[in-house]
Amino acid sequence: MTEQTPSRTGRHEAGAPERDTTRPDGSDAGGTRTAWQRLARAGRPRPTKANVLATVLALGLGFAIAAQVRQTSIEGLEDLREDELIRILDSVDQDGNRLAQEIQELQQSRDRLQNDSTSLSEARGAAQQRLDSLGILAGTVPAKGPGIVITINDPKNAVTAPLLLDTLQELRDAGAEAIEINGIRVVVNTYFTDGEGGIAVSGKDVSAPYVITAIGDAQTLASAMQIPGGVTNSVRSLGGEAVIDTQESVTVSALQTVSEPQYARPVPSPSSS
């Protein structure tokens, strides 16, 4: 930079002692007016080469200012100093760690919930299975599956309750899982008695022909009925006839209501106490 010179042209870079600060108060108004006049005179368009050059420079300066302002506003991290970058990196790291921790916690709770729901549905499935098997055993739900239908014709009215009971035992021995006789579900407390007009199953009178539907392995059940000395033989010896029909799918639709036990109470199992 140029020195502060006493010459007429030396005042452009004026970091220097300011000569005009000590103007007498009396000349203030006049000084101000002349200053404005000077400014106006200097501002008057003069087609000199230097003026054109100055205009070009000013144009360039304005362009540069606009470009730089825009550059500053669009540029991201590239212009930052090292310590600022380190600070930003640190905060980003911390954010990342915090978010990773959050992800982990959320994943854990998600896994926990999934496990919960899985075990819940497993428990529900097991309970449903148990309910189904108990329902089939107790006769509270209809059952369907392969099995046989035995029709016992008894024209001489000679079939007795023990024969039906034997038939039932034979079927159970052969693995029958659900049985009904003439629309009466045979369950654990079914009993047979000889009544006056025929046979009573659990107190309900039934009469020939006796139709027994049993679900189980059809072949096993059929052969169990037909063994020598078995049901078929016995019925034939009584003058009746037992027709055994093996089917792919039979339905045991008769239901039995389960009554609340009046006297029996479950004994708590030792493991649950």
Binding site: T55, V56, A58, L61, I65, R70
Partner: peptide, 14 residues
């Protein structure tokens, strides 16, 4: 005056 206009014009162009 003209250089001042040039400055403004430069900013506008930029």
């Amino acid at each position: 005056m003209i250089p001042a206009l040039g400055l403004v014009a430069g900013i506008v162009v930029g």
